[in-house]
Design a protein around this nucleic acid. Structure first.
Length: 1075
RNA sequence: GCUGAAGUGGUGGAACUGGUAGACACGCAGGACUUAAAAUCCUGUGCCCUCAACAGGCGUGCGGGUUCGAUUCCCGCCUUCAGUACCA
């Protein structure tokens, strides 16, 4: 019989399903191999021809590995929570679960007919309660954990509570919120239950916090940063605004360093790793504090309302913030002393980190007008600063006493006694404080902190810049500059609404009128605002070093600010900046003469000693917002008591999505879950109404496949210990900073708690390229008035006419030739169209675009399978080009692959299409052809070069056809080698050859002896130009070969009497004669 | 701008470690079979000069270099695609 692909494919697809041919064994003596595809979101449109590309590659690989004796796990499932089903539900009222089910059925049908070797007994669906029970369970583990920076891993929250009980919070090194409190074990004991929970929430790996979120009013939900593109939602393109909300977040930043380091241990494409590195955005540098010089106030201004709040009113907000940060960053000495002074232990009320004038006092007793300062070492600069400070504070009517860190730590008792004596001996002041405040210009302690990666250039600072959105801008603007600054801020806001990218190169900014002091040089520099500084990165403030940074150089040049050379190696800084790190420092105070490395180390140390900065690592990545105000997602297993979140009990999982009447927010603006009736925990407490984001379910699904039916664990320990990790993961590069990053994060977390074994989940990753659409066009002739006529002109002749291009359905075009009859039937308006042909054909124009319905360039795999069969489709998709390369889909050429399969089928059949094979001994040539392909396919598959093996199959079949080979000994092995690519035809032939179950066959063993040759047709080249071939024995060594070559008449002819200077002979490769 | 990948016939692409550039396939041209078409089979097909050649020249984005020999290695430039961005 001729090659009847329809019957063959249906027959074997049924056989595989009935026999569960591809079920992975739970335990096996064979080595394990885990091949994973990124599971699809089942959209209503079904699969187009681009979707299966990666699945075909992974299927070939899985089938190949099975033949090579591996116990292969190759599962498939559905990422079935998501926005489109919910949008559809809003429009039609149909429950998303129903839509999802329908779509999954379409996907399953389409996948089945391509003949994939998935183990469907392990299918997962993220929207199935039996699945999301475990997504919720992982959420609970995260809630119950904190990140210990000392052990560098996540630990149960109980170990944190233990630390609080034993030693308080001072020594805890954790990834946490900024506003945690410092307390003693005795304080912890006195905290109420609510206070404890509030404090613990600041440490948990998933936590509730007021954050600025990307709120999309049109979608009624919060979006992650990677779901927002240029201020619009990725899905739908609706405007997105910033809004403050209480939100669940995941403390992924705790893992930033490990996520970065892990990249060096995995076999992923370099661009993927690079994208993750950029996303995490680690910068090593320093933070430096620049003191703010108080702007001069006009008379009469000032703040009498501040009462005992003794701070300079203008700087009050800033000082308050600084003070709060300082309280969280107490030195050991300050902390020790505070424990002795607090709660009026001395008999006097003492405050710490209290703003006073333009300073922050370490400790202060307002009633006694006494300030107690604890300092670092005795640097000369320090003493000078301290003196200035003391003088200023004295002027405000305060006495200052100072102790060093050392004194406090080694002699705490004496220090405390001294303070007590001083306090007791002083008269009460009875608040007259603020009257004596002066607002003259003076050296203050209010500061702006900047982050820099080039701390070595700090002596070259000629100005400071704040982001226009920086919260202190208003405070720091002098009355004279107020108009300028407000105007600039207004422009910035307008600009961000328009296209900010467009004028990225224009320099703009405004001077605040305020000056700050460079801590290393004491120089006074101007404080500006400019929109090139981003509020969201670092501290929202940068230092400007025009000689070393081109952007700063442009800014300084534009606003006529000084440009200071700082390295002797800097060149042409009057023309542009020179960011070199070479040479020795000049104009740089105490680092003059140093080189880069030395200067950085010295400065970091110096800044820290002075308390005005320190080495710092900054990350671009922020914690991941975890809540979505949507219906179709996993409910968060949390309820609220007295406004605080509590977890459900484990045995109460899953918390199932409740039914609601409409899939919209409530009238009061609550998420859709607010509509659920009688939905309360223990009938009393409110559940969390947000659901989890799309990436929750996909961040651990590969573990569920290991043990998909387990009801008591997310996967059994035995299963996880056996399968461990994914050996090969194939999917699109669009998931680089979403799914792939979150999955690595959850995996590391699960490993820390001992639930899984591997630090990294996906050992090897391959990105299949995007399949683009290839649109075809017809050209309608337009008359003088620009109206379309009824005449269409072929692409090659269109330049002679005035035309407009129209998309035409690619399915009625073959090899760019339009099927005119089908075209006339396609649209009524074309029924009577006339055609101007070239060479009797209508040739269509071509353009590469995104594959989409509106462009009529969608090719449905169903159509191709009906016409050519699944085996042809599989091989053709591979034949198209390298897997990782993006390319337009083009059905031209699928015939060639189909012809190949028929030719292959033909090898097993005689002229009358009867199955006939011979038992004769194979010849040397036949064995050579076979073993060449055995080796080639093996090499190609191992390096994921599937397109080249398809070519090689064609060569092998062409060779065997030429040899008229129908010998069973050859063909049987060939069937096994081809089986991963074209499984149906091979399974049929395998069974016709008298075997059973190709999936249990062995890949043939390559025998190099069959490829050994005695002779080789050496290319003979003269001066590197190939001239001719010459057959020589492969046993010949250089000398004999040279003689043989020179003796050849034809070679002599090419030499034409010239004497060879040199002869290069590479055995088995080439002979090159140099004349 | 930065980062990454890539530029090879009419087209998709091959050449894996510096050793015969263009495998394999599409398309195209010619032929066989056929009343005819489809299907199938055979032959040719990088470009230029040439009636033709088993004659010569040019050819892997461009310009240089290393080498007996470069699509492959090095330097500079151009173009395309992807990601990312006033990231301090």
């Amino acid at each position: 019989m001729d090659y009847q692909f329809r019957e063959i494919e249906q027959k074997w697809q049924k056989y595989w399903a009935d026999n569960q041919s591809f079920k992975a064994e739970a335990n096996s003596d064979k080595p394990k191999y885990y091949v994973l595809d990124m599971f699809p979101y089942p959209s209503g449109a079904g699969l187009h021809v681009g979707h299966p590309l990666g699945y075909i590659a992974s299927d070939i690989f899985s089938r190949y590995k099975r033949l090579k004796g591996y116990n292969v796990l190759h599962p498939m499932g559905y990422d079935s929570f998501g926005l489109p089903a919910e949008q559809y539900a809003i429009q039609t009222g149909q429950h998303p679960a129903v839509t999802t089910e329908t779509n999954i059925n379409t996907y399953r049908r389409q996948l089945d007919q391509i003949g994939f070797s998935f183990d469907w007994s392990r299918e997962v669906r993220t929207s199935d309660p039996a699945y999301y029970k475990w997504t919720q369970w992982i959420f609970m583990q995260l809630f119950n954990s904190w990140y210990n920076l000392e052990t560098d891993k996540a630990e149960p929250i109980s170990t944190l509570i233990h630390k609080f009980n034993e030693a308080g919070s001072a020594d805890v090194k954790a990834a946490k919120d900024e506003d945690t409190r410092t307390f003693l074990p005795t304080d912890w004991a006195t905290f109420s239950e609510e206070e404890k929970q509030v404090e613990l929430l600041k440490y948990r790996l998933t936590y509730l916090k007021e954050s600025t979120v990307n709120w999309c009013p049109a979608l009624g939900t919060v979006l992650a940063n990677d779901e927002v593109k240029d201020g619009f939602s990725e899905r739908g393109g609706f405007p997105v605004e910033q809004k403050k909300m209480m939100q669940w977040s995941m403390r992924i930043t705790a893992y930033a360093d490990r996520l970065l380091q892990g990249l060096d241990t995995i076999d992923w494409p370099e661009p993927m790793k690079e994208m993750q590195r950029n996303w995490i955005g680690k910068s090593v540098g320093a933070s430096v504090k620049f003191k703010i010089l108080t702007p001069t106030l006009s008379e009469g201004e000032g703040a009498s309302n501040y009462g005992y709040e003794t701070a300079d009113p203008l700087l009050w907000e800033i000082l308050k913030t600084n003070a709060r940060v300082n309280r969280g960053n107490q030195t050991d000495a300050e902390d020790a002393l505070w424990q002795e002074l607090r709660n009026s232990k001395t008999g006097h009320k003492v405050r710490r980190q209290h703003p006073i004038g333009t300073y922050i006092a370490d400790f202060i007793c307002l009633n006694k007008r006494l300030i107690i300062e604890v300092d670092g070492g005795y640097h000369l600069e320090n003493q000078e600063n301290d003196k200035a400070r003391t003088d200023a504070l004295n002027q405000l009517g305060f006495e200052v006493i100072r102790f060093t860190n050392e004194e406090v730590l080694s002699n705490l008792k004496t220090v405390v006694t001294q303070i007590k004596l001083e306090l007791d001996s002083r008269p009460d002041a009875k608040s007259t404080a603020s009257n004596s405040l002066s607002f003259g210009e003076g050296q203050g302690e209010a500061y702006i902190e900047v982050f820099t990666t080039r701390v070595d250039t700090i002596f070259g600072v000629s100005y400071l810049v704040l982001a226009p959105e920086h919260e202190w801008v208003a405070e720091l603007t002098t009355p004279e500059q107020k108009a300028d600054i407000e105007n600039y801020i207004l422009q910035t806001k307008k600009k961000s609404e328009l296209d900010r990218m467009a004028d990225a190169k224009t320099v703009s900014g405004a001077f605040t009128g305020t000056y700050v002091v460079n801590p290393v040089s004491g120089e006074r520099v101007q404080l500006w605002i400019a929109d090139y500084v981003l509020a969201g990165y670092g501290t929202g403030a940068v230092m400007g070093v025009p000689s070393g940074d081109q952007r700063d150089w442009l800014f300084a040049t534009h606003f006529n600010l000084p440009i200071i050379q700082i390295l002797d190696a800097q060149k042409d800084i009057d023309v542009q900046a020179d960011p070199t790190k070479e040479g020795k420092y000049i104009n740089s105070g105490f680092i003059n003469g140093m080189e880069y490395k030395e200067a950085v180390a010295f400065l970091n140390q110096w800044l820290e000693d002075q308390g005005v900065g320190k080495a710092k690592v900054n990350f671009r990545q922020r914690d991941a917002i975890f809540g979505r105000q949507r219906y179709w997602g996993e409910p968060i297993p949390v309820y609220f008591k007295n406004g605080l979140p509590y977890l459900l009990k484990e045995e109460e999982l899953p918390l199932v999505l409740p039914e609601i009447d409409k899939y919209l927010p409530t009238e009061t603006g609550e998420p859709p879950l607010g509509r659920a009736e009688d939905w309360k925990y223990e009938d009393r407490y409110e559940y969390e109404l947000s659901t989890m984001p799309g990436w929750a379910g996909s961040s651990w699904y590969w573990y569920r496949y290991m043990d998909a039916q387990n009801n008591s664990e997310f996967a059994s320990k035995e299963a996880v210990d056996y399968w461990k990790d994914v050996d090969l993961y194939i999917g699109g590069s669009e998931h680089a900073t979403g799914h792939l990053l979150y999955s690595r994060f959850w995996n590391k977390f699960l490993k820390d708690l001992g639930f899984v074994q591997e630090e990294e989940p996906f050992k090897k990753l391959i990105n299949q390229g995007m399949i683009q659409g290839r649109s075809n066009f017809v050209y309608r002739v337009v008359d003088e008035e620009g109206r379309g006529t009824n005449t269409l002109v072929s692409a090659g002749l269109r330049k002679d006419y005035k035309t407009i291009a129209l998309h035409v359905d690619v399915n009625i075009v073959e090899n760019d030739v339009l099927d005119i009859e089908k075209f006339k039937a396609w649209r009524d308006e074309f029924a009577n169209a006339e055609f101007i042909l070239e060479n009797g054909k209508y040739i269509c124009g071509v353009e590469v675009e995104k594959m989409s319905k509106s462009k009529f360039n969608v090719v449905n795999p169903d159509v191709l399978i009906a016409q050519y069969g699944a085996d042809t489709l599989r091989m053709y998709e591979m034949f198209l080009g390298p897997l990782e390369q993006s390319k337009p889909w083009n059905t031209n050429g699928i015939e060639g692959v189909f012809k190949f399969l028929r030719k292959f089928w033909r090898l097993f059949h005689n002229e009358a299409w009867e199955f006939t094979v011979s038992d004769a001994e194979p010849t040397k040539a036949e064995l050579k052809a076979l073993h060449k392909i055995i080796k080639k396919v093996q090499d190609d598959v191992e390096r994921f070069s599937f397109n080249t093996s398809v070519s090689s199959f064609m060569i092998a079949v062409n060779e065997l056809t030429d040899l008229k080979c129908n010998k069973k000994a050859i063909l049987q092995d060939l069937v096994v080698v081809l089986a991963p690519y074209a499984p149906h035809i091979c399974e049929e032939l395998w069974s016709l050859l008298g075997n059973k179950d190709l999936s249990t066959a062995q890949y043939p063993v390559f025998n190099p002896n069959y490829l050994v040759e005695d002779e080789f047709a050496y290319p003979i080249s003269i001066n590197g130009k190939m001239k001719m071939n010459l057959n020589l024995s492969l046993t010949l060594e250089a000398k004999e070969a040279e003689e043989a070559v020179l003796a050849n008449e034809q070679v002599q002819g090419f030499l034409n009497g010239a004497a060879p200077k040199k002869i290069i002979f590479v055995k088995g490769k080439i002979v090159n004669i140099v004349v």
